[in-house]
Design a binder for these strands. Structure first.
Lengths: 345, 345
DNA sequence: CTGTTAGCGCATTCAG
DNA sequence: CTGAATGCGCTAACAG
């Protein structure tokens, strides 16, 4: 491996001079600077960042932990974070927890031993509190994304889950739906709780009754809980619309409905949070509350860098991003059924 | 920052003993081992990997460079790579070149200065040769993914682009299409060239003429070249089917067709390489040659790790993965047109 | 079983 | 404008 000493020797200067040329510090005569530069090129010198960070106590690496790399919401967010990091001259260490607490913990250990300068963290859920505290304990600058974690005080960028859910459910109500089911993520995730609250509020404001039978709590990953869906569909008074707490859930639900011979939206409407990626552009289908994923990453990274480079301590900041109701064809006006033996009175 | 010296002092041993406990090397009495472990926990010790790699000359970091983080092909590939890396105890540094040669170069510099133990590299195209040579020059173990780069000898995992394209075009021919256009990626990408070759072979084998007017070369990113599409559609004898060289191109093309009032597949059939992600599961639509993206990442990472850990030098290995023809509804049998003033005679 | 010495590659400090 | 000495945190090699 080529070191600054190799350069120094060949250029007839001291290692320190080479270091100064590399970092553009101190005053170096134009002549020696040129000479050193030339030797560096000849020898194909690459600075060793381990050695560098050992003395500088900085790595110039930031880490982004996302919860699901197969979810377009997070990959788009990742692009935003990457762009902001690159612009500020930081390297980005990606990590993917796969909505899995143990994996998340492993990655936190890695960030700690890598001594990253800061972390952009999309938590798995409330359980992430230990992992986050670990980071905080070691004074790693931290910005949280997407999901709030009770007990953690840090900068955060999140979507307005409650409002988004409310808008989506109100849309379903406006289409005439009265029996609206919600298939939610795990209750230990803040967005799941808030989306549930929004759902309830919309029902209350619309004068509709809450029926616990219509609410199912699962995870945020692709839906495989066919039993839950069966339970909903075999209710005495089954739902005519389903609100899914995120995009991947909606995809799984629609598939399962199809397998049961139910068409969306003819037989049942489906709406969800978050867009589903490029494919949506082919056959615009899913009615969604779309979140500005790229902005999540971009703004989060900006907050993080500001915090790292800030002189004085600042109180935690919170950015709340609105979501956009995009009405497509997975929801439609409820058709009055002619069967239903006149119970309607 | 807590160091092994802090631990050593508090536990009443030497730093070396602490190091031995951490790495499970040498023989340590069960008693002192326990004592050291306890102090480590109390002090919340985290090893400094910069210091560690400075002496060991290993970072335990592998890097994965993908060409487009918004393309489901690459994100699925990333999961495969991540799983294999984690299993072998390596950390993974993701990077995303965005199909951009300059960004790719920046990331290569970063990998070099980070002294990563190996690189999984999905090249931008033939231009990547300089970046790859840079890595090779510094003796970084390397596995290439998806796209071959002339002049580079290294392990590689790729799809069978020629066969995949051939199968796709033969499918179109079997549906009665005779005027089949190809919208291709840039000709300086090996997969684009091979898919073109497959396209030609299928036409020749089917006894159809090659018509250069039907072939357009663009980039692999989302399609914005409406002029190219217009040129195709205004030909005297326009295509009845389009073969797109990848998924994102197909999405853009279908959108553009829609804007022009053309329906897929009613007015024109479209088929492409690579699946389009979870959304496809909702409304199975695109007929594709699907590649086993997860396997690309998994096998590539396995090759890389084998090469890193191998004692002796091995000749470059090449894994070619077949693609799967999945017929969905974006292609359909050609309907005989009743117009066309009898020129067919 | 445990400790001492030395050095990985670099930048900070202090002298010139 | 340039150089020498020193230490960042850790482990390999050698002593004991």
């Amino acid at each position: 491996m080529i070191t600054i000493y190799d350069i120094a020797e060949k250029a007839g200067v001291s290692a320190m001079t080479v270091s100064r040329v590399i970092n553009n510090t101190g005053r170096i005569s134009e002549d020696t600077r040129k000479r050193v530069r030339k030797v560096m090129e000849e020898l194909n010198y690459i600075p060793n960042s381990a050695a560098r960070s050992l003395v500088s106590q900085k790595t110039n690496i930031l880490s982004l932990l996302i919860a699901d790399i197969t979810n377009p919401f997070y990959t788009t967010l990742a692009r935003g974070a990457e762009d902001a990091a690159k612009k500020a001259g930081y390297r980005l260490l990606f990590a993917n927890s796969d909505e899995n607490y143990a994996k998340e913990k492993d990655y936190v250990d890695m960030m700690l031993s890598t001594r990253v300068d800061g972390v952009l963290f999309a938590p798995t859920g409330d359980l992430s509190v230990d992992n986050l505290n670990r980071l905080l304990q070691h004074q790693i600058p931290l910005v949280i994304l997407d999901r709030e974690v009770p007990g953690i005080e840090a900068d955060i960028v999140l979507g307005d889950s409650k409002e988004g859910a409310k808008t989506l459910v109100e849309h379903l109500v406006s289409l005439g739906h009265r029996r609206i089911a919600m298939i939610n993520g795990s209750p230990d995730v803040s967005t799941a709780r808030l989306r549930y609250t929004g759902y309830r509020e919309a029902l209350v404001l619309s004068g509709l009754p809450m029926d616990d039978e219509l609410v199912v709590h699962l995870g945020f990953r692709v839906f495989h809980e066919d039993a839950a869906l069966d339970a909903l569909l075999t209710l005495k008074d089954p739902p005519t619309a389903i609100f899914a707490a995120n995009n991947l859930l909606a995809v799984g639900i629609i598939q399962s409905l199809r397998e049961r011979g139910l068409q969306v939206p003819e037989d049942i409407s489906v709406a969800c949070f978050d867009d589903i990626g490029p494919a949506e552009m082919i056959n615009p289908f899913l009615t969604v509350a779309a979140q500005p994923a790229y902005q999540f990453g971009l703004l989060g990274m900006q907050l993080l860098i500001e915090r790292i480079e800030a002189e004085a301590a600042q109180p935690p900041r919170k950015i709340m991003l609105p979501s956009d109701l995009i009405i497509r064809s997975s929801t439609r006006e409820l058709q009055r059924k002619e069967t239903n033996d006149g119970a309607e009175g």
